[in-house]
Design a binder for these strands. Structure first.
Lengths: 132, 132
DNA sequence: CAATTAACCTATTGACATGGTAGGTAAATG
DNA sequence: CATTTACCTACCATGTCAATAGGTTAATTG
């Protein structure tokens, strides 16, 4: 289940991609267009800055903008950054997970196959693919 | 993220499929083989009975067994029953969800595409596909 | 009938995530 | 200096997850 963190982040990215790049776009505008609470978006957007997806600047004329060209982002990197992991099961999500049943688990191969499917789906999808 | 409910349920199904069908298998045995708390499995298994996946009978010689032939189950129906939904986003998971942005949402088509991918993956996978 | 086995039922718990809200501080610009 | 806007800290209510605990009912067997 993809939470609002990932979904809202994606919409912020799309909003920035569409509302021309070089200018800084204030969060207030994005929140209004996207009909999302600005206060809540602040939390999400902060992590997007930390993760290097976007850049922010304070003061008049400030706001947020993309750090790269829109076609240079994959949906996968955005979702993965915000959700922590794309993996569908705990044993694949945390790298350091040591399952004692790893060798005998009959379900693991399926989870691995599913994991790859998800990964490929999102990493082969560019941000710009979502814009008409 | 698939929770233990779905994952454990699947392992119970596999255990029943392998430990020959017509006999009732006590939960204690399954719990020991699968290394899962019997008490916790009780909760899960109860829902599997309610959902019609398996049948249980009390008393000596009792336990659980499949209600159909192993090759007649898809992984999809098992996971979906236990998790409530296979959908990756809230707006697709609950049928009665009325999103006001449905017509303008730029991300919805992608979620629908992803939803279909997940559904097809799990419903085209038989329980018996996981046994060797 | 009594003992045993095993499912079934109800309640509770601790930890964590989700989806926010509230209020204040720092920085940039005119 | 006033305004704008990002940034920071703290808090909270609700829900889910993953169990645990203890008791009751049902079926079989000696």
């Amino acid at each position: 289940m993809i939470s609002t963190r990932g979904r809202y982040a994606l919409r912020v990215m799309l909003d920035l991609a569409e509302n021309d790049s070089d200018k800084y776009i204030p969060l207030k505008d994005i929140a209004e267009r996207q009909e999302i609470s600005k206060k809540y978006l602040e939390i999400i957007v902060k992590d997007m800055v930390t993760g290097g997806l976007i850049a922010g600047t304070s003061g008049k004329g400030g706001g947020y903008k993309l750090t790269r060209a829109p076609h240079d982002y994959t949906v996968g990197e955005i979702i993965e950054l915000m959700e922590g992991s794309l993996s569908p099961v705990a044993c694949l999500a945390d790298k350091g997970y040591a399952c004692t049943r790893k060798k005998v688990c009959q379900t693991l191969p399926m989870w691995e196959e599913f994991d790859k499917l998800i990964h490929d789906f999102f990493y082969n999808k560019k941000l710009t693919d979502l814009i008409n």
